[in-house]
């Protein structure tokens, strides 16, 4: 590999990548978040159904908590919408010129979808 990629966290955060860089970072984080959730869910289901273990129930309580659920819903919605944006830009490469605008546009889709979902989830959580 020709490029040296030894960039510290602070130097990376100072880099002015703007919207597209934020989308790239969040795409990576949300992808890893979905992998974490699916892995936990598979392990917990295996432990409770096949082993009858209490550990599975503990993992279940962790990922069914409202905080983790709000995180994972954001991951799923963001990864889906941003992935769709990437696919559209790859199919029509001329649109790359409007990459920055496309990241603004995607937030107009993600925020209403996520905030509405989060509102329903939090209202349900508060109602008990």
């Amino acid at each position: 590999m020709a490029l040296s990629r030894k960039v510290g966290l602070l130097a990376g955060a100072k880099y002015k990548g703007g919207g597209p860089m934020l989308a790239w970072a969040l795409h990576r984080i949300s992808g890893l978040g979905i992998i974490l959730f699916v892995t936990l869910h598979v392990i917990a289901s295996f432990l409770t159904q096949q082993m009858g273990s209490d550990l599975g129930i503990s993992i279940n309580i962790f990922y069914e908590s409202i905080y983790f659920q709000l995180f994972i819903v954001f991951c799923a919605i963001f990864h889906g919408v941003n992935g769709f944006r990437i696919i559209v830009l790859d199919i029509w490469p001329r649109l790359i010129r409007y990459q920055k605008e496309s990241t603004w546009l995607e937030w107009f889709v993600i925020l209403p979808l996520y905030l509405l979902t989060a509102f329903i989830m939090i209202r349900r959580f508060l109602a008990g």
């Binding site: 590999m1 990629r5 990576r28 992808g31 890893l32 992998i35 699916v38």
Partner: peptide, 15 residues
């Protein structure tokens, strides 16, 4: 998902 994990892994490790 596993391919994505491979891509992330190759970004943060050296061959």
């Amino acid at each position: 998902g596993f391919n994505g994990l491979r891509v992330v892994l190759e970004d943060y490790t050296s061959p």
